[in-house]
């Protein structure tokens, strides 16, 4: 059984990342479940998707302390989900800071110590800078697929399986751009 959480800010493409992952896992013969957030929370709020695959999956939600890969598209959103990580789990985070409303208005401060804290407290953390890859891919919207590229290095599925899943999941006119983004992510 593998448990993955994708976290981010509404609009960052968290749901699509989980869709591609589900497609890969299903095609490899696994049972798959996922849980996602729609509606009001999508208006720039915190969002996350739980993806689970294995021989037989019951719960669409991952139990706290049992997440194998916590993949966050934004720093602060990673920190909100830390308690879901399993002791053997891996953190993958995009090194980007998106100020939430209370920070924009000056009412609160964006935590300044996230990267340092992660480096000194976690053995399994990968902090990545996606800016170059996104520039090369040609769209900031490809962040979700770049992150999938990073994640794919840790999972058992081959590059072709991922590319096939991307082809099946994203809109046709964005396929090439996303496959490029995926492969750029694999190099990060």
């Amino acid at each position: 059984m593998k448990n993955i959480i994708f976290a981010g800010v509404g609009g960052q493409g968290v749901i699509l990342a989980s869709k591609v992952t589900m497609e890969v896992a299903k095609n490899a013969g696994y049972d798959v479940k996922e849980s996602e957030v729609h509606g009001m929370a999508q208006r720039g709020g915190s969002v996350d998707c739980n993806v689970r695959f294995g021989e037989k999956v019951y719960s669409p939600l991952i139990k706290k302390g049992e997440t194998d890969f916590l993949v966050s598209f934004e720093l602060l959103e990673l920190m909100r989900k830390l308690e879901y990580l399993s002791p053997e789990g891996t953190l993958i985070v995009n090194r980007e800071q998106i100020d939430p409303a209370p920070v924009q208005t000056g009412a609160m401060k964006y935590p300044p110590d996230i990267e340092d804290w992660l480096k000194s407290n976690s053995k399994n953390v990968k902090i990545i800078d996606t800016r170059e890859a996104l520039k090369e891919a040609g769209s900031r919207k490809a962040l979700n697929i770049v992150m999938l590229g990073v994640l794919s290095n840790y999972l058992e599925f081959g590059k072709e399986q991922w590319e096939e899943a991307i082809r099946k999941t994203v809109k046709e006119k964005f396929v090439d751009m996303n496959i490029k983004a995926f492969n750029l992510g694999r190099e990060l």
Binding site: G10, G44, K63, G65, E83, S86, A107, M108, N121
Partner: peptide, 21 residues
């Protein structure tokens, strides 16, 4: 109780409520 992988992160985290676009 659930397993805890990491110590508690104690810095105050600003919430991220949904917003008008």
């Amino acid at each position: 109780d659930p397993d805890q992988a990491l110590p508690d992160y104690t810095t105050e985290m600003p919430p991220r409520p949904p917003q008008l676009c």
